[in-house]
Amino acid sequence: MTDVWWGVLAVCVGCYALKLAGLSVPAVVLEHRFTVRATALIPVGLLAALVAVQAAAGDREVVIDARLAGLATAVACLLVRVPFLLMLVFAAAATALVRLV
């Protein structure tokens, strides 16, 4: 098996195990105040980091390129509540157009 397949397998097993844990583990263990506080912000942190890296990371350097136009378009779309799928189409189009210029 290739490295990518191992990664895919780890994602599948890990994500399913977490879902099953939520339905199986007694609530008191995980509703402990410390656990809730420690984990509440993980999705925000990871998604913010993913936005930053996806929009501006190159090969070990920060680069400003057409992707930023896509991100700016996405912000505009989110502000006026454009549906998710349409927002992605606009963001892709903006990125591709700026790249052509």
């Binding site: 994602v11 890990g14 996806q54």
Partner: peptide, 25 residues
């Protein structure tokens, strides 16, 4: 896609999946 190893990808992915535990609860 950004050049990370599949294991780094899996780690990020599973960390993000942690919220599903609380949904289950």
């Amino acid at each position: 896609a950004s050049g990370g190893s599949p294991i780094a990808g899996a780690l990020t992915s599973v960390l993000l999946g942690g919220r599903n535990v609380f949904y289950g609860i």
